[in-house]
């Protein structure tokens, strides 16, 4: 009985699992050399509270795709740096917002797809801190990748988040933009058309809006 109670007590105070020894079975799916090379990266990420799940996923992806160990390690290292930069950017933009793994991953991917860091930061600053940005940032990345100017795309996303547009509607925008692009519409016009076809209110024209920008000093 005493031994059983001791076992229970030990379980309650057991040290946290080391990075890599997760239920995802990283150690079992990677060869020893690759796992050994990745372990310092994962441990460092763990110490810095960088999300580990996407790093492990990238390692598993590389193994599944039979990439060389060096390529897997490089990809995971690069992703760790991107996640660190994304987290720093989001924290600086909204210090009171929680560090959400989804937001950090989406911010890193948005920047990888061409969204300038200042637009990611602007979006974080201008929506309530507790709002999840994972889907809004993903949609922003989709729009910028399709050629929509980043500032306009960000303004639209920001408007939708603050207006309470459901994410289920937001994720439909890129495919509607594609329809307009296929018939030759410029990206910004395609975005406006997509919003109208989805019944999403278009932000008012002006700086950051969808309308034409007036040059500085133009009062006409």
């Amino acid at each position: 009985m005493v031994r059983l109670l001791a076992l229970v007590s030990w379980m309650a105070t057991a040290a946290p699992q080391l990075p890599g020894q997760q239920t995802s079975g990283l150690a079992t799916r990677l060869d020893q050399a690759t796992y050994a090379a990745l372990r310092p990266i994962l441990e460092a990420a763990g110490r810095d509270s960088i999300p580990l799940r996407p790093l492990e996923a990238k390692a598993l992806e590389g193994t599944a795709k039979r990439r060389p160990a060096a390529q897997i390690v490089a990809a995971v290292q690069r992703l760790a740096q991107e996640l660190q930069q994304a987290r720093l950017l989001l924290r600086q933009a909204a210090p009171t917002a929680p560090d959400a793994e989804g937001d950090i991953v989406a911010a890193a991917e948005a920047m990888r797809r061409g969204v300038p860091a200042e637009e990611v930061a602007a979006l974080r600053r201008r929506v309530p801190p507790a709002t999840s940005l994972e889907i809004p940032l993903a949609v922003l990345g989709e729009l910028v990748q399709r050629g929509v100017p980043a500032a306009e795309a960000r303004a639209v996303i920001e408007h939708m988040v603050n207006s309470g547009v459901p994410q289920a509607r937001m994720v439909e925008i890129p495919s509607h933009v594609d329809v307009a692009l296929r018939v030759g519409a410029p990206p910004i016009t395609a975005l406006g058309s997509a919003l109208q076809s989805l019944g999403i209110p278009v932000p008012p024209p002006g700086p950051g809006g969808l309308g034409p920008r007036r040059p500085p000093g133009d009062r006409g």
């Binding site: 946290p16 999300p51 929680p98």
Partner: peptide
């Protein structure tokens, strides 16, 4: 939660 990960905040 595991060490090194943070829970998602999610929509408020």
């Amino acid at each position: 939660p595991r060490a090194g990960t943070v829970p998602d905040a999610g929509p408020s």
